[in-house]
Structures are given as C-alpha cells and as structure tokens.
Simulated scan of single mutants.
Amino acid sequence: MDQVAFIVWRESVEALLVVGILYTWLRASPEGRRGMPWLWGGVAAGLLLAVALALVFMGVSTWLSDTGQEWFQAIMALVACGLVVQMVMWMKKNGPTLKSELVSGASANLQRNNWWGLLVLVMIAVAREGSETVVFLWGTILAGAQQNQAWMLAAAGVGGFLLALLTFYILQLGGKVITWRRFFQITEILLLLLAGSLLMNGIDHLVSLEAIPTWVDPVWDTGAVLDDSSGIGKVLADFAGYRAMPSLMHVIVFALYWLAIGLLHRWSRPAATRLMVATHG
C-alpha cells in the first residue's frame, strides 16, 4: 500500500510540475490564454494513453497461465526498476533546465500558432508520468487484486494523488517550507531505494521459476532481529529490498545494483565537477 501511495505521489508531483509551468506561462499573456483548452486537452489525452496502457496490461495478464503471470510479474518488476533508475538520472541531468525547455518549446508553438504542438507536448509529458506509474505499480496491483485488496490499493492511489496536490501547493509557495531542488534530491534517494526493492521482487520471481540459481540459500538469517514480513522490516522490504533470509544471488545482485548506481551518479555529474573531484581526490 505504501509503495502505491508513494509512486502515485511522486509521479503526480512531476506531472503537476510540467502542467503548472505551462499553465503559469500561458496565463501570463492574452495570446497564451488562448492555449488553455489545448493545455487541458493535452492533460486529458495523456491520461487516456496511460489508462489504455493499463487496459493492455490487464488484458495480457488475464490471458496468461499461472507460470506466465509469474514471468510477467518478474519482467515488469525488472523493467520498472530500470525505468525508475532512468527517470532519476534523467531528472538529475535535465531538471535544472526543464522549465526553460518547456517554455521555449511552448513559445515556439505559440509563435507558429501551432496549438496542436502544445497539446502533443503536454500529452507526452503527462502520458510519460502516467505510463511509468502503470509499469511501476502493475506487479503490486496484480498481487493486491489476488488478495482481494483492490479497494485498499485504490484508496492508496487516491491518497497519493491528494498528497501530490498538497505537495505541489506547498512547493509553489516559493521555498518557504521546502524547495523544488531539495524535494527532488530527497525523492531521488527514495526512488533508488524503491528501485532496489523492485529488483529484489524480480529476483524473487525468477528464483521461484527456477530461472536463476540461488547458489546458497539462505546466506544468513536476521529474522529474529528484523523480520521482513511485519513492522519496520516489512517497510524496509517494500521500500529498500531488505531480505531477512537472502540467497547468495540476492546478495550479489543487490550489491551490483548499488555499485552501478554509484557509477551512474558519478558519470552524471557535470564535467567540471568530475574534473575537480578527480584532481582533489
């Protein structure tokens, strides 16, 4: 449930940021106000694309056998992990220039009186966040539906969206509570932890399918100290991939994941920053 609320919250805030930037820019001039219907049309079209993707996934999952669904959930968890990491690195690289790029793109469309271009720009931005949300949450939603928890998942999603609206309002106050930069720094860390959890879920499914070996199972057992099925241990399992009784495969993959994250973080730094770090050790 917590994963659902968090993902919907974070992705909704990012979509609201894009829409909010364009809304503020369009509202600032009489010419821009003519594009308001196209802005909201782009939002609606983006949401429809995300819903269509969800329906496709729903249809695919109903056609699959039990083994097929196990493979589907494994693949979705691994794809979601990759998308989370890609999104974090993309925002790290493009976040500082996102506003100027959006405004320049919208301005070019306005000068050409090309409102369809504005609609497509917004549609792609909203559909991107919506489709990522569908991919991230599909395995969780499918498991919850099997446990008759669909209404709880829906409530968590609604709660996450309402929290996103509140967060967006607070951030729009001008940094009196928390700045956009600090918000993205904090959520980047949380998203990378969540990506690690998705990776471990994918490995769980592959081990269950006997598609990969465990080698040693378990390597250790910390269940007596921190059980991963309840309390804080369950939260760490859901958000950070903690396992009380991991196999050697889990340990190796988890270590390689964080090593890769460290390398990607280093490579994503501006060239001047990398040179300074290398010079001063």
Rank of each mutant, 00 (worst) to 15 (best):
F57D: 02
G59H: 02
F57A: 00
E101I: 02
L165C: 04
G59P: 00
V177E: 08
V79R: 04
G144Q: 15
K176V: 15
F72P: 14
G105E: 09
A125M: 06
G175C: 07
G175D: 06
A155G: 07
M152N: 13
E101A: 10
L162I: 03
L118E: 07
I124N: 11
A54W: 00
V158F: 10
L162Q: 09
A108H: 15
F136D: 07
Q69S: 12
A150I: 14
N114R: 08
Q172H: 06
I178D: 12
V84S: 01
V79L: 12
V120C: 11
N94T: 08
M58Y: 06
G157E: 00
A106S: 13
G95W: 01
G139Y: 07
L142A: 05
G59R: 06
W151R: 09
F168W: 03
V120L: 11
E132S: 02
V120F: 11
G160H: 02
L102T: 12
Q147V: 06
L121E: 14
A77V: 08
G105C: 10
L137I: 04
M91V: 07
E132N: 09
L173I: 10
L153Y: 15
I124E: 14
S61H: 06
T62N: 03
G59L: 03
G117C: 04
N109A: 12
W63L: 14
K93S: 00
D66R: 07
Q86V: 03
M76N: 13
W116F: 02
M76S: 13
L78D: 08
L118C: 03
L173S: 11
C81G: 04
F72Y: 09
F168S: 13
G174S: 03
A156Y: 08
W151C: 01
K176T: 12
A155L: 13
L98Q: 11
W71H: 14
K99F: 00
L142N: 13
E70Y: 00
Q69M: 11
K92Y: 00
G95M: 03
G159Q: 08
M152P: 01
M91C: 00
M152A: 04
G117I: 05
G68Y: 06
